[in-house]
Simulated assay, not measured.
Amino acid sequence: MINIRHAHDDEASLLAEIGIRAWGRAMLSVGDIEAMEKGAESAFTNFTRGSWRTITVVERHGVPVGWAAREMLDENITDFWIDPSQEGQGLGKALLDVVEEEIRSRGFDKACLQTHARNEQAVRFFTARGYSVQWLSFVYSPKLDRDVETVGLVKYFAVEEPDTYGPGF
């Protein structure tokens, strides 16, 4: 059974471990993971401990298996991680649906995120769910202490039009 909920402060270490495993898989195409791994571990640990209130968790049978974050609680999805051992089971889609609904319910007309340009799996996942690439650039990543080729993706939410004919009808 899949359940989606807000994170608890006592599960920061578990969420960091999921993030690190998913990050490692996503960074395979970049190479030199070992050089970046220590910084990534520290970044995930610090983030999940300090920003757990901004994290939405997907769990399967009561066990967290992925999470997403919106650091500023705005339209920007700053983190999206599914444990590699749990991929391809609909967990990412379920999590994304809930995060998008949270964004929509706050009055935003779009959801935005970014990932490194070589993360083809993530780009494919998000474009299959209505996101489009808006930009490509090199962005300095303080977590990795290096420039990373990055793509920005955006999904505009449909605006419901009134079911009328012409103005005032």
Rank of each mutant, 00 (worst) to 15 (best):
I4H: 00
I4G: 09
A7I: 01
A7G: 00
H8K: 12
D9E: 10
D10G: 00
S13N: 06
S13E: 12
L14D: 06
L15C: 03
L15S: 03
A16G: 00
E17S: 06
E17F: 06
I18A: 10
G19P: 00
R21C: 02
R21W: 10
W23E: 12
G24S: 08
G24F: 08
A26I: 01
M27K: 09
S29Q: 02
V30Y: 05
G31A: 00
D32T: 00
I33R: 04
M36A: 15
M36I: 13
E37D: 14
K38H: 11
E41C: 15
S42K: 15
A43Q: 08
T45E: 15
T45A: 15
T48M: 11
T48S: 12
R49A: 04
T54I: 03
T56K: 05
T56G: 12
T56L: 09
V57H: 07
V58M: 14
E59V: 09
H61R: 12
H61P: 03
G62L: 11
V63C: 09
P64Y: 00
P64T: 05
P64N: 06
V65G: 05
A69F: 08
A69G: 15
R70E: 00
E71W: 07
E71V: 15
M72F: 15
E75D: 14
E75Q: 05
E75R: 10
E75W: 11
N76D: 15
F80H: 06
D83A: 06
P84H: 10
P84W: 04
S85R: 12
S85Y: 07
S85Q: 13
L91C: 07
L91S: 04
K93C: 11
L95M: 02
D97M: 09
D97V: 05
V98P: 05
V98C: 08
V99M: 02
E100K: 03
R104V: 01
S105T: 11
S105R: 12
R106L: 08
F108C: 03
